[in-house]
Design a protein around this nucleic acid. Sequence first.
DNA 1: TAATTCAGCGTACATGTGTCAGCTAAACTA
DNA 2: TAGTTTAGCTGACACATGTACGCTGAATTA
Lengths: 209, 209
Amino acid sequence: MSLNRAQKKEQTRRLLINAALAQLSDERSFGSLSLREVARQAGIAPTSFYRHFQDMDELGLTLVDEAGLTLRQLMRKARQRIESGGSAIQTSVETFMEYVTNNQNIFRLILRERSGSSRLFRAAVSREIAHFCDELADYIQSITPCDRAFARVQADAMVALVFNAGTEALEQQSGEQRRALTTKTVVQLRMVAAGSQTLRQQGAAVGGR
Amino acid sequence: MSLNRAQKKEQTRRLLINAALAQLSDERSFGSLSLREVARQAGIAPTSFYRHFQDMDELGLTLVDEAGLTLRQLMRKARQRIESGGSAIQTSVETFMEYVTNNQNIFRLILRERSGSSRLFRAAVSREIAHFCDELADYIQSITPCDRAFARVQADAMVALVFNAGTEALEQQSGEQRRALTTKTVVQLRMVAAGSQTLRQQGAAVGGR
DNA sequence: TAATTCAGCGTACATGTGTCAGCTAAACTA
DNA sequence: TAGTTTAGCTGACACATGTACGCTGAATTA
């Protein structure tokens, strides 16, 4: 029952992380959180914060990493659903929308820090998204063998559209709206998929140029 | 030479607007600007700020409106270039990239406030983008007659891709990178254009469903 | 058991903030 | 010209912030 010192430390570290996460909302960005607020919500003295993080920045980067992790788990889940039948596009979009709905604060964090005021944060988010695109490009190539660079361009487009849908999803509360958004996004991805096939054929006909 | 009272007031109002704009950068978001900083940069006392804006929010919304205006001007310019020959997609993307390059701070403002912490700001940006999409949908219909809703879905996708490219453009400084980004975006838009044509044909064959 | 480590605390300070109250002087109006 | 309006000013206020310093007591180690 009694915890280790290390365990106890890890515990309050989580308390801080959760405190920060809890303060995030549609009206509150990470940059607007103060060290004192987070410490207060975690139930520790402001100065004790430094026992766990050097900076608020360090806390923030931790959050971004956690978000990336959750995203990767999400990807795996989507792949599983696809293997057991169903449209890859439809399933992926549904999975993503589900994620956004269930992790609004953390997804908002990613969206905001993507073009936020900290180079470090932007770089961190950029890495996560690049990872996302890479894996999708892999998948595209495994389904439709083609030039790597081309697959990457297609993957980038698809990820951009899905993230854009995520942005819009955050503004909607009714399930009805969200469902409409999902089908819209599915159509958009189908456009990209179909179009990329067309371009591939044309390119091949002209001689790979 | 001597200005009347109203003119002078308008003049310092512009001073405030420009001061805010000047403080924005890749490391400084509008939300992080203080009333005092802006007033200082404009060369007036903090309390005089209130003679022109009720709030920093009011100033911010003014900036968003100005950005929208600039964007509309940009659109017109693009249409002109297209009418005098040239690919619509290529020309549009080039025009947009040019805009982003020349108006980094104001475009960043839009990007950030799109999913920022103020409902008002988000709504304002959302309106501007919707306007953007509407006009593009008009254009698509004028070129390729089709269902309005369908054109709108296509337009949304294209605008999302272009804005995404804008986001990426802000991270790049070499003209080389920017040119690569432009061609990538052009390919992505061609994918959407080609794909939407395919879907339209398929949809018609199945019976408009 | 005795010595060491260290998570968390309280106090304190300098700094920046938004905004209130009231003044001045120049521009306007009648 | 005499009276009014008003853009901009100074001074002051209460408040929140980040963080330096040094203490305490429990957990750990030797």
